[in-house]
């Protein structure tokens, strides 16, 4: 029996730009299996980021329904969505988005703070930092880290609340090819070790090649959706 972690049905997202409506997502239906690795590709402006934002509960669809981890979230209010983002979703951004003033540990602690965890927060953050291979850099600030290391901190941060899904919007876009490959390896390893569902937006077909499933977007619709046989689910 299939275990859907994400169920999107007839999702529309309309942006009003003055007089014209832009259909960023145009009746999109998509289900993602728990533990899957899915790549999202497509030309710029095709709606990839919009889709990621809706999956990550950063934004609400204009129409359609969305169930995340068995719970309908398309109707929830701001604070309820904040809690979903906090507990179910881990974001990895292209530009890392770390707090420059804070150390790696403090950055990783942040989702725990918003979860209301007061005891053992530091230890948990450090544990995850070790997991991503940063035991030597835990008290460094982002400025003192390389791009690849910063992205590792971001991954640790995404991971610390044990989310059901990790959403990575072009996670290797700002990295050189070697650290990009390392980051990809790390994400894939987290998927296989911890069973976390992984969704990656990418322009890189090499990245997509390592995903189990790839969808291609065009004008807010899924144009192609194929599963590679080479990789087990």
């Amino acid at each position: 029996m299939a275990d859907w972690v994400i169920e999107l049905k007839d999702i529309r997202k309309v942006y009003r730009m003055g007089e014209v409506d832009v259909n960023a997502l145009d009746g999109l239906t998509l289900r993602v299996q728990r533990g899957d690795i899915m790549a999202i590709m497509g030309p710029s402006g095709s709606g990839k980021s919009t889709l990621m934002n809706i999956i990550g509960c950063l934004d609400r669809p204009t129409a359609g329904s969305y169930r995340l981890d068995g719970k309908t979230v398309s109707e929830l209010q701001d604070d309820a969505l904040a809690e979903i983002r906090n507990r179910k979703v881990g974001f990895v951004f292209q530009s890392f988005n770390l707090l420059g003033r804070s150390t790696a540990t403090a950055n990783v602690e942040l989702p725990l703070r918003y979860a209301g965890v007061n005891k053992g927060r530091r230890e948990r953050a450090q544990e995850v930092l070790r997991l991503v291979g940063l035991e030597e850099r835990m008290e460094h600030r982002p400025m003192e880290l390389s791009g690849g290391q910063q992205q590792r901190v971001a991954i640790a941060r995404a991971l610390v609340n044990k989310p059901a899904i990790i959403l990575a919007d072009e996670p290797t876009g700002n990295l050189d090819s070697r650290s990009g490959a390392e980051i990809l390896d790390l994400l894939l390893k987290l998927n296989s070790d911890r069973g976390v569902t992984l969704i990656i937006v990418t322009h890189d077909s090499n990245v997509a090649a390592r995903a189990h499933r790839t969808i291609k977007l065009k004008d807010g619709c899924i144009e192609e959706d194929y599963v590679s046989d080479a990789k087990p689910a």
Binding site: G56, L58, D78, D79, A82, E83, R85, N86, R87, F91, N97, L99, L110, P111, Y114, A115, R157, N161
Partner: peptide, 16 residues
């Protein structure tokens, strides 16, 4: 603004 957006993405509520 970006920092605020990030905090919200990480689960900060309005009152946080």
């Amino acid at each position: 603004t970006r920092e605020i957006g990030l905090r919200k993405a990480l689960g900060a509520r309005r009152r946080d």
